[in-house]
C-alpha cells in the first residue's frame, strides 16, 4: 500500500455506519442551531418594536408644549416655532 492509499483505503461497514450517524447528528445540531438563532432574534426584536397601543396610551394626554424633549434637543427641522417679528 503506497502513502496515497493509506488515506484512501475503503471504509468498513462499521465505519460507514458511524460516519452516517455522525453526519445525521451534525445535521440535527445545525438545524437546531438555526432555529435557536431565529428564536433569539424574534425574542430580541419583540423587545425593540414599539407597540402602537402602548404609544397611544402614553401620549394620549399630552399637550404639544408638554411633550418631553431630551435635554439639548430642539424641535425637528422645519417644526421650529415662528419667531415673533416686529413690524415697524
Amino acid at each position: 500500500m503506497n502513502e496515497f492509499n493509506q488515506y484512501q483505503r475503503p471504509l468498513t461497514a462499521a465505519e460507514v455506519n458511524a460516519r452516517k450517524k455522525r453526519n445525521t447528528a451534525l445535521a440535527i445540531i445545525l438545524i437546531a442551531f438555526m432555529l435557536l438563532i431565529f428564536g433569539i432574534s424574534v425574542v430580541k426584536l419583540q423587545g425593540g418594536i414599539a407597540r402602537p397601543q402602548d404609544w397611544q396610551e402614553e401620549t394620549a394626554g399630552w399637550q404639544l408644549d408638554e411633550a418631553p424633549v431630551e435635554a439639548g434637543e430642539g424641535p425637528p427641522p422645519g417644526m421650529e416655532p415662528a419667531e415673533e417679528t416686529t413690524s415697524e
Binding site: 493509506q6 483505503r9 468498513t12 462499521a14 465505519e15 458511524a18 460516519r19 455522525r22
Partner: peptide
Amino acid sequence: TDQTMNATTSAASVRDY
C-alpha cells in the same frame, strides 16, 4: 500510524464525542 489514526476517527461514535 496515520492509517490507524484515520481508522479510529472513522469509527468514532457520536457517544464518544
